[in-house]
Design a protein around this nucleic acid. Sequence first.
DNA 1: TCGATTTAGTAAACCGATTTAGTAAAAGCG
DNA 2: CGCTTTTACTAAATCGGTTTACTAAATCGA
Lengths: 332, 332
Amino acid sequence: MKKKSIKDIAQELGLSKTTVSFVLNNKGDEKNISKKTQEKILAYVREVNYQPNQIAKSLKKGTTHTIGYLVPDISNPFYAKIGRLIEDVLADKGYHLLIGSTDEKQEKEDALLNMFVNRQVDGLILASTFENLGMLKTLSAQRFPMVFFDREHPDFIGNYILVENKNAMKEAVNTAINKGAKKIGLLSITPNIYSLKLRIDGYRESLVENQLNVDEDLMRIVDNSRIKESTQEELNYLMDKDVDAVVFTNNQITALALWAMNINHKDKIDSVRFVSFDNLDLFDYSNPKVNSIAQPIDSIANHLVDILHEVMQSTERVSKRIVLEPKLIERL
Amino acid sequence: MKKKSIKDIAQELGLSKTTVSFVLNNKGDEKNISKKTQEKILAYVREVNYQPNQIAKSLKKGTTHTIGYLVPDISNPFYAKIGRLIEDVLADKGYHLLIGSTDEKQEKEDALLNMFVNRQVDGLILASTFENLGMLKTLSAQRFPMVFFDREHPDFIGNYILVENKNAMKEAVNTAINKGAKKIGLLSITPNIYSLKLRIDGYRESLVENQLNVDEDLMRIVDNSRIKESTQEELNYLMDKDVDAVVFTNNQITALALWAMNINHKDKIDSVRFVSFDNLDLFDYSNPKVNSIAQPIDSIANHLVDILHEVMQSTERVSKRIVLEPKLIERL
DNA sequence: TCGATTTAGTAAACCGATTTAGTAAAAGCG
DNA sequence: CGCTTTTACTAAATCGGTTTACTAAATCGA
């Protein structure tokens, strides 16, 4: 009992494939198929629960109703949540997600981009590492529908949904200073991404504005390839220097620092102030609590889908850059 | 400059589609295509960076190298992590993931299953709610390659990768009792899933074995449809009853309870003992800390892919049920 | 030297849908 | 009644690959 094709249906009803196809695509009236025949087809199709082969459809139509979602790591809560929100919005429109995690590695990103293109996805939503602009520029030149988020590259023009990085970080650090912080360290993953640089700039500017000493030695960059151990080491370094606050440039490093803090510096948990770019629910009940800059994920997801949809429709080139305001969540 | 097809390549080289296809599929030698021609084709293909259309390939071959991943919520850290691990293992084999979240809703699950089948995925990895056995049984009867995890249904025979639920929970509760807990509450999402029932059974059995009073009133089921508020209410209830430990049946509810605890019962944080089925990294630095039953996610992911692969290869029906041992992580 | 085999390749069918271009019969019209 | 139009439907091409069945030329073997 293999799956029925439209050809089978047509044969069994003594009609042509064409007629059946027309009716199934709601073109029965337009194509002058009699009500009776339409009814007959629909009834039969319902009876045998015929399901059209989407692959065949895609081949002919050149559209797959599939969107590629390319991020550094789908299991990072930020990307996972955005992914989930996008999934829901897209599902309403009949689109589904093919996913790919790059681990920030260019080869993986390139391979995945190729994979997406060969599978004829209708569009891409991506948090690219922007290490290989060539490939992205080629796609862009071909008008391949793409919308970027979370990260941007100044040399790449495209559709971006971003959040304000520098000012949000500045404001968050200002708040920490107002609450009494005087010696503020920074912990970041390697800032190969422009957004991270901006976040670090925000930290710097806040210190300057508040006439605090900008000490490069308190700005620690962890080694991405051994991120857990490296975070622990760098946090230890900062705690040894007796900082009274630590600023983190993304949620991943904050979570790791929380872990390290509970292992090595339980005594200082109540005396140090954590500030994180990106929010995590757990900051509500972590030890220590964390002040965080929460990206408006619902809004990001909605904009991503809206813009992508717009790009997929329109024939002209569109390049929108939408910058959303994150929200500072104060917990201590 | 539209994408080149194999037909274009053939024309441009003065060869037939057949020859080009043979060479591109490494059948050049077998099909007696001369070395010279093979070289010519390969060189040209490299030069113009020809990428075969996977959709066309899929249509002809009847295989898409795509696996469907169906879970209640891809943004739940447990499913997200398993998803990520599976993604990596599958990518090595040239497979990629199409995802779908069900929100535990049967209609969504059915729609997604249909979607997966119509898109001709080669296999499914699923944490089903098992509310509509009909659809699953139909697929199973058609030998559709499926592997289930996280949840099982006693009336459905299939491939399962599970963890020991009852005994693991019993052991975890035993440990809490040994450390001094005497009045132990339980908080669970609606246990419509067999695994959850088993976890609750484990809790019960531990109480019985330790001659503690089994008080149904201390076993609180939250309302899934307003899970956040309901968890808060039920936690309040338990705290009012002065329990000295709370057992949670999955990570989602534990995280919510941690949040509620920090809002309403800060004073009791150090005097209450949390035990959670499912681990979360954050339990290392949450307030309070949480003893958890960690599922062996790497092992689960590897088994899922292994078994799925096996099922996809073999023509006979296979039904394996693999039960892995979770690990108790003691943090307090 | 002549039939058999090997070499090197191709034409055409096929996967399962959509879509264009067309036809035969019925209906409309003056 | 004869011509046009409409109705109701279909044959065949197409999307871009793979695969089967075939052929012409070169080589082999006795």
